[in-house]
Design a protein around this nucleic acid. Structure first.
Length: 531
RNA sequence: GUGCCUGUAGCUCAAUGGUAGAGCAGCGGCCUUUUAAGCCGUUGGUUGUGGGUUCGAGCCCCACCGGGCGCACCA
């Protein structure tokens, strides 16, 4: 400070909540001034005549003269996005989420008491305006206010209007701010909702009934994944958040529900990435008397339909490329996808027969050329020496083939070893009658002819338990009740699980799963709790 | 869990190891058709946290707390 006389100022406004920015103090003072004028700062209701989108749709094309002649009176409400004050007049742009509309307030139009309220309005506040539709000199459709209602105070300021909110951490943690500051975020979640609604409609129309099965499981089954553990006090037992609803949905098949689906959350205790959130939404559906191929047919039809509803077509923009969701999707055997991918990496072409032969495949993964290929990919080649044939195929597919499946592609014929709940192929018992659907290198769906032989299922569980004993903590546990259910007879059934979040990513051109989950998992603010 | 990057005003961003700044927002003033309103004036900082090096740290070093991307695990 210099030794000049300081400008006298009033008492500094105090933020109403410790830690809030100084501006919240200014806004709180205005709220108090509003109350002093006899207005509720948080009134209960306001009657709108129209939504903003409806006004623009019905009258947005009318000329200045037509609007004047028709004398259309409306009552609108919304959040103040921008504010331009001119002394005895002012303009504000309101938004109601669907659309924006300008309002024009004149002191001689609303009267002195209402204009005093106007002078206490900040950006981000909610107001209601009644008045007549007009067009300004510059041609913008505007409501010229005859009355003004204060509807809700925003004590905190929104991000500035030019750059909006870009800090990704704040965007995910404070999604409410993100959605106001970045309108396209709202569009993404509206599109996701349309997609899910389209899927429900699709299933309902085909005679499927929607069911809800337990989220807390005594045994975490139906997928190969690590679960979250929780505890029930009264029962005195640990429970697992479900990793998949599969085994419960198939119990319903035993009970006589021939077509069921569930759209709900699964929880897997694994790392986070652009493609993984610990809780994620899956569609699972089961159809009596369907096999794997029937399930593939209905799955691609469902996805094509969802794309049309959510985006208007089957050509989906995905970054620099266009994905075609037009059915039928490409199909490739898993061994063939591996043979193709390996042939590009190795000096000698690899055949499907070689991939499917235990000894020959083992020989390939121990060659110098293969080790070199692994090094190029950053994959530990030594791991391959320890793997069984089925696990080798699984790893080769993941390491070499998967990333190349950009257009929607069904991969079929999975090793039985990695498919403990799927039926064997009748013509080749080494392989399960199973498919997975890949798009843009991501797994989107997984389905198969359900294993319904209780004794083979029990044997498969026992194999899994052996793997678990061998250190595979994602292997399946024994579920005796599920075996008992199968013991009562499950009709031939085809099932499918489809990742809703990932499909939403593709249909909204979102690079990260966090952009299609409203509140993605983050570390708690303030850091990890002390142990 | 690991490698690289990153954290500065409410928001978006500057600042060779040498006085922490700008735009918007805010506050005061003028303004009855503006629209990134304008013009004049002006407040605002524990530079994520804690240590260290240095005459001097937003900048260099260490640890920690968050976040992003890649890898691992997985869908």
């Amino acid at each position: 400070m210099t030794d000049e006389t300081p400008v006298p100022t009033g008492p500094e406004p105090e933020p109403p909540v410790p830690g809030w920015p100084k501006e919240s103090g200014e806004r709180f003072d205005k709220a108090k001034a509003l109350a002093a004028l006899g207005h509720a700062v948080y009134p209960t209701r306001f009657t709108r005549s129209h939504g903003l989108a409806a006004i623009i749709k019905d009258w947005g094309e009318l000329t200045t003269e037509e609007l004047a002649a028709k004398a259309i009176d409306v009552s609108i409400a919304g959040r103040v996005l921008t504010l331009r004050s001119h002394g005895k007049t002012g303009f504000a742009t309101l938004t109601d989420g669907d659309a924006n509309l300008q309002v024009y307030v004149r002191k001689d139009g609303v009267g002195d008491p209402a204009f005093a309220v106007w002078n206490l309005v900040d950006m981000a506040d909610f107001i209601g305006v009644s008045g007549r539709l007009m067009r300004t000199k510059s041609g913008e459709l505007t409501v010229q206010a005859t009355s003004l209602a204060f509807l809700s105070k925003a004590l905190l300021p929104l991000p500035e209007k030019w750059h909006g909110l870009t800090d990704v951490e704040t965007r995910y943690r404070q999604r409410y701010v993100d959605m106001v500051a970045n309108p396209e975020v709202r569009k993404t979640f509206v599109a996701r909702s349309k997609m899910v609604a389209a899927i429900r409609r699709f299933m309902d129309e085909r005679g499927y009934i929607e069911v809800e099965t337990p989220m807390m499981h005594p045994i975490a089954g139906g997928a190969l994944a690590r679960p979250f553990v929780t505890h029930h006090n009264a029962l005195g037992v640990d429970l697992y958040l479900r990793i998949a609803p599969e085994l419960y949905l198939k119990r319903l098949g035993v009970g006589g529900l021939e077509r069921v689906y569930e759209i709900n959350r699964n929880f897997r205790n694994e790392g986070l990435s652009a493609h993984h959130n610990p809780e994620f939404t899956m569609l699972e559906f089961y159809t009596a008397y369907f096999d794997c191929r029937d399930v593939m047919a209905i799955t691609e039809e469902l996805i094509e339909n969802a794309a049309i509803v959510a985006t208007g077509g089957t050509d989906i923009t995905w970054g620099d490329t266009v994905l075609s969701f037009k059915t039928p999707f490409a199909r490739i055997r898993m061994s063939e996808a591996i043979a193709n991918a390996l042939s590009k990496e190795l000096p000698q072409p690899v055949t499907v027969a070689e991939v499917e032969d235990t000894a020959k495949l083992k020989a390939i993964v121990t060659t110098e050329a293969f080790v070199a290929a692994c090094r190029r990919k950053g994959v530990p080649a030594a791991e391959y020496r320890k793997l069984s044939h089925g696990k080798t195929i699984e790893s080769l597919f993941g390491d070499f083939a998967e990333e190349g499946l950009i257009q929607p592609t069904y991969v079929v014929d999975y090793p039985v070893e990695i498919s403990p709940l799927a039926k064997r192929r009748a013509d080749n018992p080494e392989f399960a009658d199973r498919f997975e659907l890949f798009m843009s290198g991501m797994e989107i769906a997984n389905g198969f002819s359900e294993l319904n032989d209780p004794l083979e299922q029990r044997a498969r569980f026992l194999d899994q338990i052996e793997s678990r004993a061998g250190g595979d903590d994602e292997a399946h546990s024994m579920d005796e009740d599920y075996v008992r259910a199968l013991g009562h007879g499950l009709p031939p059934t085809g099932g499918c699980g489809l990742g809703i979040d990932r499909l939403a990513m593709l249909l909204t051109n979102s690079r990260s799963i966090r952009d299609v989950i409203l509140f993605p998992q983050m570390r708690p603010e303030g850091g990890r709790r002390a142990e």
